[in-house]
Design a binder for these strands. Structure first.
Lengths: 240, 240
DNA sequence: CGTCAGGTTGATTAGGATCAACACAGGTGG
DNA sequence: CCACCTGTGTTGATCCTAATCAACCTGACG
């Protein structure tokens, strides 16, 4: 993936234009954002932001996957969020990061200097409303994950994670096709950190689900789901 | 606690005026909110909102404690947030609740009809900015709790919960006094649901901490902490 | 005095962590 | 070309923390 692509010249070409923080901006607002933006790329495994460091920029994931995580003194790690294309990084109004953000695949960000972006938010209701909407969506997602971390079994955690990936990565694809194929953006270790498990437990649960025919593995990263209804039953879905 | 108090007449008397969603409002904005607001009270144990129900109102906790929680089909429950005085209930832009909200002590709310509040937010930057700020704070708190739920031991969970209560309920009190006294707003069961544990494990950990002298119990709800530094060491604090 | 909700404590179990060995793919350098 | 290494993943054996099952305690209240 070359760093310079058509959407870098023009926001209207941007693949995530309609889902990102700028989704509800008017053409003139977009022109202004366009003039402020710059792109940054990170290789898989590279840190995007360290907890405790100054945050000079905010940005949107254009391609790739990153994780928001926190380390404990003794090395225990918990991933608190997956950042997929259209997700926003950074908190306006805060100048010091309180999480680590790490690129888990190659990542391209559409960035803004933090001060400039904050000014823009201050004078652009479309932008501040969208920020609020996205923050509330993230809050819902975080709370959903609290249910998973606090109460679900290892098997339910894996099934829930896979169904979340299906929901987030197959948008507008053939929905009625029974066989759903997804690519796992995370290693076993990164999944373990996200699900509050160990690598070994993740691996074992994949093996069990494979043996039961609920998932089919092609290599370590390509996965297909013969029946999403069947897998959904394994998520321990809530009462709603 | 009588339902009609002085702050019901005048926002300037309100005990949470400077911390709530209206904290940054100008006097004229406050007058308008004042004219829209109404108070509701809920007895301990009563539901404030059911998942799936229509949300006709939003509001701020003026006194008492409520929990945000979610039930699974088989009865497993996870509490996703504690609502203490000044916390906000409800999501503008959504008309159906996706969580249960329950009063765990007697609760008084300062409410607004949802539509009226949404209009007010739309035309009052002070209010929408404050909403964003509060949503981002809640997001940080939710992520902090994900670390607790995913990676901490039962002992660390209890210690972290107690230190969180200390932080949230002793504001402006004698800080240099060694002996900190707090009142537990939750039953053992509610704490278990918040911490992803069982009642029995919560009870046992309290017994252990008591035996070790890290906490002193007076009845079931009154607790004092001889040394907050010592208790802090038990929280498994993160690397930051 | 009996009942009941909330809490404690003990005995046992089980799910996932830990420790350990091995498999496999992709580089790298002789 | 192959030997070697390293990062990633799988599988097995064992251990341990917290869940489960169960009995009992305590105080409030009719």
């Amino acid at each position: 993936m070359t760093p310079v692509q058509s959407y870098e010249k023009n926001c209207s070409q941007c693949p995530i234009r309609h889902r990102a923080v700028c989704a509800t901006c008017e053409p003139d607002e977009l022109v202004e954002l366009d003039s402020m933006k710059y792109y940054r790329s990170f290789e898989a495994g590279q840190p995007i932001m360290w907890s405790g460091d100054r945050m000079g920029f905010v940005g949107t994931v254009v391609s790739g996957t990153a994780t928001i995580e926190r380390l404990m003194e003794d090395g225990r790690k918990q991933t608190m969020g997956l950042l997929l294309p259209s997700d926003f990084i950074g908190r306006p109004g805060r100048d010091t990061a309180i999480y680590d953000v790490t690129a888990v695949t190659d990542v391209t960000l559409c960035c803004f200097r933090r001060e400039g972006f904050e000014q823009m938010v201050g004078k652009t209701p479309h932008l501040s409303q969208r920020m609020l909407e996205m923050a509330l969506d993230e809050l819902d997602a975080a709370r959903e994950w609290m249910l998973l971390l606090g109460r679900k079994t290892a098997r339910e955690k894996i099934a829930t994670f896979l169904m979340m990936l299906v929901r987030r990565t197959t948008i507008g694809n053939e929905t009625n096709s029974d066989e759903i194929k997804i690519v796992l953006p995370l290693t076993r270790e990164a999944m373990a950190d996200y699900l509050g498990l160990t690598i070994e437990t993740v691996s074992r649960q994949f093996s069990v689900l494979k043996k039961e025919g609920l998932i089919v593995l092609d290599g370590k990263r390509n996965l297909s789901i013969p029946s999403s209804e069947a897998l959904l039953l394994e998520t321990g879905s809530d009462a709603t």
